[in-house]
């Protein structure tokens, strides 16, 4: 009973700190996050709110420990020694934190952007001090350490409002190049997802092994990627079929000695085809 009376004041103070301080910290960080998000960006909001939250938690913890009678100086001294040890053990984490700070300052992408890092493509869901979280287009969760982001080539797919879809098209050597280019231009004009401006790029690129090669580059609003890709590939095929344009498969021509003479083949209509010999030679 005496002990309880002796510590009653401290207990009340600790209870007040915990029951008022913690909810205030939660509400305060949430409000700060909203404010910073509105004024700056979502990832700055997240970082600043997280920093405030952890600082607040440390202050509350230290205050509570002090009220409970712990020697904070001794604790901090121990924490310093532990910090050196932890520092050695957590070089990778520190590298990630510093890389994270560079990423935040440089702002190569924001939350909600579609990015590609190495072979991984996805939407940025979270930018943290240690890593960023991506949700891939087939709905997988990928965590990429910030150090990797700094060291790798990162492509922000949705940085600009419009993009170009490059399609390689091959047609048979017998086709009229001007006609093929006109058909491709008409296909682009008729597709509503294909932007009129900037104009589609139609380039005759190569005399390939089996085809005349074209690059057909059509511009689109970044939100129409799937709609455009699905529709324009079908429309190219339909337009080529309608105009009798051949899309070739790889050809090989055999010559029988002279470069200009074709391989001689004699077609014998009425001769019976000899049966293949069996294993027993019957």
């Amino acid at each position: 009973m005496e002990i309880l009376e002796e510590h009653l004041e401290s207990l009340i103070r600790i209870a007040l700190i915990l029951f008022i301080g913690l909810p205030l910290l939660f509400v305060g960080t949430r409000l700060l996050r909203k404010f910073v998000t509105r004024k700056l960006s979502a990832h700055f909001g997240m970082i600043i709110a997280n920093a405030l939250f952890y600082i607040g938690i440390i202050i509350i913890l230290v205050t509570v420990l002090a009220d409970m009678g712990f020697q904070i100086g001794a604790l901090l001294g121990a924490a310093g020694i532990a910090g050196v040890a932890i520092g050695f053990a957590s070089q990778t984490s520190l590298s990630n934190i510093i890389s994270g700070l560079f990423t935040i300052t440089e702002k190569p992408f924001a939350i909600g952007d579609a990015i590609q890092v190495g072979e991984t493509r996805g939407l940025v869901e979270r930018i943290g001090l240690l890593s960023i979280n991506l949700r891939t287009f087939d709905n997988q969760f990928v965590r990429i350490p910030n150090e990797t982001i700094i060291k790798s080539q990162v492509t922000t797919i949705t940085r600009y409002p419009i993009r170009r879809l490059d399609i390689k098209v091959g047609v048979a050597y017998k086709e009229d190049i001007a006609k093929v280019m006109k058909i491709l231009r008409d296909v682009a004009n008729k597709n509503p997802y294909c932007l009129d401006e900037p104009e589609p790029l139609i380039l005759f690129t190569d005399f390939a092994d089996s085809s005349l090669s074209f690059l057909f580059g059509v511009w689109f609003s970044r939100t129409d990627m799937l709609l455009l890709r699905n529709s324009i590939m079908r429309e190219i095929k339909e337009a080529f079929d309608a105009e009798g344009i051949e899309i070739p498969f790889p050809h090989r021509t055999l010559y029988s000695g002279e470069a200009t003479q074709p391989f001689p083949i004699r077609l014998v209509k009425d001769d019976p085809i000899p049966e293949a010999p069996t294993e027993k030679g019957e």
Partner: peptide, 10 residues
């Protein structure tokens, strides 16, 4: 109507 872009690519 077909989409079009009015301005710079960026």
């Amino acid at each position: 109507l077909s989409n079009t872009w009015f301005g710079l690519p960026t």
